[in-house]
Design a protein around this nucleic acid. Structure first.
Length: 870
RNA sequence: GGUCGAGUGGUGGAAUCGGUAGACACAACGGACUUAAAAUCCGUCGCCCGUAAAAAGGUGUGAGGGUUCAAGUCCCUCCUCGACCA
């Protein structure tokens, strides 16, 4: 099916086949399953759970974001995430750390439920099958996970504690019911969080989403907005990612200002980040949903306003606020009084103002805000200049920059920043407004009208009171109903679970009904990194002492698509747990890296239909479909099932082995870079591993190579120097995580050098195998074993380089004339600047370019170069 | 529209604090080995100009300008692509 399958399969040494006995090539299909079984049976990577044993060594927690176990199975994109984390875990283990490196399954959620509906099979069955497939596929790659800690978010042993943590949030008043405008997806029959909706569509499926007012569970993440923002400074995350979180939280400082309505005792409050421009406010706008709209609208305008509001409410936020769309609005007939100069200004209703942001009302300053300017221009509202500094007349374009206040009474002559402070002080003094901080972050919509998720540990009494269940009553198990499909009316599937599940009698005898919503997909992943620390605890989510030892996660790696959602939600829960005294760190993930995506070539015809690579055929420099001859376009895109360009990790392992897959994924580029998959490149690293094999094993005899000696490593001084260079570079590059590609380059250079030496000291070879082991653990272990060592090389001590081996007696000095390279000089390493200068001036090639011209300046960079300026 | 990031050979990518551009691979080409092929080993490999072949030289990191003894790297302007946000 895929291109590389055409390449001949790896040679499998035929066991017991007399004719083939003389041939002993590198055979990953033999050695990899063998050592994987050994690691499993001897529990090579099991981490002790006993705190006293743990305390004998420092800890390191390496975590790759656990996968959502969809039916598509594992592809090389997943491996691009897990290979670098595994290399790093191996590296730290060899450096003498207790390494936490676990794996588990994010198993609740919509995609599985959709498959269940489509294939008419229970989500629990599908999940079981999917997780088994994932585990099998992941295990073939030879990762050093402690499998005894495996978790599955969809089993009661796990979600019992998700419910338990929810109760802690509930007790703290952080979970509440509210009638909120929600993103209702008719196709899915559920509400979605803001984060799951983009451009009016569900991000996963593209199904349209509409606005509805519904009673929902909310989590008060906004209560932690400031902490979530400030504590970003404590983290070793990529700056860009922190910036995205900051932006998502969207803190803006400004003022609430109260506007009285003319000829009325009513008033409304606006939030603005530009109180300095209050003198320039020439109208106000209420959001269509604003409660005051119906009260203040003049009877003459009532029908127009009513119609406008009705239409606006169904639009998405994006449609409403997009700068590119034409502004619409309608005048209410009422006026507000500008509090700074008592001028009446008209009140409009317009959908570019959102009820969910700020107060749902704005003061409009068309002179200094792009949207207001556009709106005022369209409706002929006056535009006033109150900040001087634009290079176009204020009627032509708004000026949003910094400048000096004009036409602004007591603010005239002040800079924007001073004017803001003075205006806020004035408003506060007059009782007309106050300093205010506003966030873009909204509370988290936490309930779903679906089946495949955690039930809430809450019950409703007849009088409407909500009662939380006792910790001992957990878990509230998901009832095994068959009718889990969504209904038209938004009634959750759990409402059909039957009275046995629905009806509860409380310990005090009162009758109650269970909450029938479920938690969203993100719930389980909000705390899974804590459960790994104590995965089988039946008394608590995790042991406090173990938590104190292991947390925080030192190195977390995952896709950039989780830069805001998962990472923000998990940080929020963690902070709540911290405030409950349940965890010891303010932040869960100290270090974090986003691995790049794997791209692959895809083939598409003019109609947009995708073709598998083997359905395409090259004709000249164009591609056509084999069957129909239709011309095809090729492009490098992100790997995905729908683009027919997925490379399955199993196929690569079948053809080349897991070590090749691991090495290739790292060799194609930096871990954080997105790079295209190239079948030919896989061959390259496969050849490298074969060279490593032949370095140790004589393919004809199957014995150790004749070149190998027991002599000290230093007998081959060139090799010995290259080895120490390799130790140094592999150590540094592995430490960086991102530059594992150049670590592999250096190992290749070492192997090329070693192939050319007359003898090969086993000592040097064994040291090299240590370096290779985190990257290609199977071949390293096998050769380690063949060299007569017992035990696992994965448990051996990481080597350190000797700087004195690296320094040589002579160095190459670059001789430049006027900045251009003219010759390379071999000089003693300890040559003085003067000696270097003399040597350079004496050099024939250098002299040719000086041509007797006077030397104006000489720059010497020690051990590097000399530049003679003439 | 905004913010951030990135543009280096035929390809993936190296290049520390500004100090040898193109490491390591892939592909291609040439050679050795072979009855032959595969595999393996050796060699060439930015462009231009040169040459029997070399040597020597020029030029070159998206475009243009600047700073510097020295720029892929720093600064300014622009172009293109990507990510995120609106």
């Amino acid at each position: 099916m895929l291109e590389f399958i055409h390449i001949k399969p790896i040679y499998r040494a035929a066991k017991g086949d007399e004719h083939d006995m003389e041939n002993h090539p590198y055979a990953p299909a033999e050695i990899e399953p063998y050592w994987q079984a050994e690691w499993r049976e001897k529990e090579a990577f099991k981490v002790p759970n006993d705190i006293e044993t743990l305390k004998t060594k420092p800890k390191f927690y390496v975590l790759g974001m656990f996968p959502y176990t969809s039916g598509a199975g594992l592809h090389v994109g997943h491996a691009k995430n897990y290979v670098p984390t595994d290399v790093f875990a191996n590296f730290r283990r060899m450096q003498g750390y207790h390494v936490m490196h676990p794996m588990g399954w994010d198993a609740f959620g919509l995609p599985t439920e959709r498959t269940a509906v489509r294939e008419n099979e229970h989500p629990a069955h599908i999940t079981k099958r999917n997780t088994e497939t994932f585990q099998q596929q992941i295990q073939r790659i030879g990762f050093s996970y402690d499998w005894s800690r495996k978790i599955d978010t969809s089993v009661p042993e796990y979600y019992r504690w998700t419910q338990w943590i929810f109760l802690r949030l509930y007790e703290k008043g952080l979970a509440y019911l509210a009638d909120v405008p929600v993103n209702w997806c008719p196709a899915l029959g559920t509400v979605l969080s803001n984060e799951e909706v983009k451009d009016g569509k569900y991000v996963e499926t593209g199904d349209p989403v509409e606005r509805r007012l519904m009673r929902q569970w909310m989590l008060k993440i906004t209560a932690y907005a400031d902490q979530l923002l400030e504590d970003l400074d404590l983290l070793d995350w990529p700056e860009g990612l922190k910036e995205m979180q900051r932006h998502w939280i969207g803190k803006s400082e400004g003022a609430d200002i109260t506007f009285k309505i003319k000829d009325s005792d009513k008033a409304f409050t606006v939030f603005t980040t530009r109180p300095d421009t209050l003198f320039g406010a020439t109208y106000c706008v209420l959001a269509p949903e604003h409660p005051l709209v119906s009260e203040i609208t003049h009877p003459d305008a009532a029908s127009a306003v009513g119609a406008y509001v009705k239409e606006a409410i169904n639009k998405s936020d994006l449609q409403r606020t997009d700068l590119a769309t034409e502004k619409t609005g309608v005048f209410t007939g009422a006026s507000a009084i500008n509090p700074c100069n008592n001028t009446p200004i008209p009140i409009w209703v317009a959908d570019y103002v959102l009820m969910t942001y700020g107060t749902g009302a704005i003061m409009a300053v068309p002179g200094h805000d792009a949207r207001d300017h556009e709106f005022a221009s369209a409706f002929g509202i006056p535009i006033l200049e109150v900040i001087k500094g634009g290079d176009q007349p204020i009627e032509e374009a708004p000026f949003e920059g910094d400048g000096v206040c004009v036409n602004s009474g007591f603010l005239n002559g002040l800079q924007v920043a001073e004017a803001k402070a003075k205006m806020i002080a004035w408003l506060e003094g007059e009782g007309k407004g106050s300093r205010q901080v506003q966030y873009r972050l909204r509370d988290w919509l936490f309930s779903r009208q679906r089946y495949w998720g955690e039930p809430f540990p809450l019950v409703h009494l007849e009088d409407g009171t909500i009662v939380q269940l006792l910790d001992e009553e957990l878990p509230v198990e998901l009832p095994p109903i068959d009718a889990y499909k969504p209904t038209e009316d938004g009634q959750p599937p759990l409402a059909r679970a039957g009275s046995e599940w629905l009806n509860v009698t409380l310990p005090d005898g009162r009758a109650a009904t269970r909450e029938t919503n479920i938690m969203p997909q993100w719930a389980g992943s909000c705390w899974y990194y804590l459960r790994f620390l104590d995965a089988h605890n039946t008394e608590a989510p995790f042991d406090t002492e173990l938590e104190r030892y292991w947390m925080p996660v030192d190195s977390y790696m995952g896709g950039a698509e989780h830069a805001v959602l998962h990472l923000l939600y998990a940080r929020f829960w963690h902070k709540v747990l911290y405030d409950c005294g349940l965890v010891s760190t303010r932040e869960p993930f100290q270090g974090l890296l986003n691995q790049g995506t794997i791209l692959a070539e895809s083939y598409q015809d003019a109609r947009g239909k995708y073709y598998y690579p083997n359905e395409a055929e090259q004709k000249g420099d164009k591609f056509v479909a084999k069957a129909s001859g239709v011309p095809l376009q090729t492009q490098i895109e992100k790997m995905s099932k729908s683009r027919f360009n997925v490379i399955n990790s199993d196929d690569v392992i079948d053809n080349y082995g897991a070590d090749t897959l691991r090495l290739y994924l790292l060799f194609i580029g930096p871990v954080t870079a997105s790079t295209p998959w190239q079948d030919a490149g896989v061959e390259g690293v496969y050849r490298f591993l074969q060279r490593v094999w032949r370095l140790v094993i004589d393919e004809d005899s199957g014995e150790l190579g004749e070149k190998l000696t027991d002599a000290p490593g230093t007998t081959e001084s060139e090799l010995w120097r290259e080895l120490h260079k390799t130790i140094k570079q592999v150590t540094e590059d592995t430490e960086s995580i991102d530059k594992m590609n150049t670590a592999i380059s250096q190992m290749m250079i070492f192997v090329n050098t070693a192939t050319q030496t007359k003898t090969l000291p086993k000592e040097a070879l064994k040291i090299f195998l240590h370096l290779l082991s985190p990257y290609a653990p199977h071949i390293a272990q096998e050769l380690w074993h063949r060299l007569g060592e017992t035990g696992f090389i994965a448990h051996a001590q990481w080597p350190t380089h000797d700087e004195s081996v690296l320094t040589s007696a002579t160095v190459t000095i670059i001789a430049q004339v006027n900045g251009k390279l003219r010759n390379r000089l071999q000089l003693p390493a300890d040559a003085t600047d003067k000696e270097i200068e003399e040597a350079a001036l004496a050099d024939e090639r250098v002299q040719r370019f000086i041509e007797g011209k006077p030397v104006r300046k000489v720059i010497v960079v020690p051990n590097r170069l000399i530049n003679i300026v003439v």
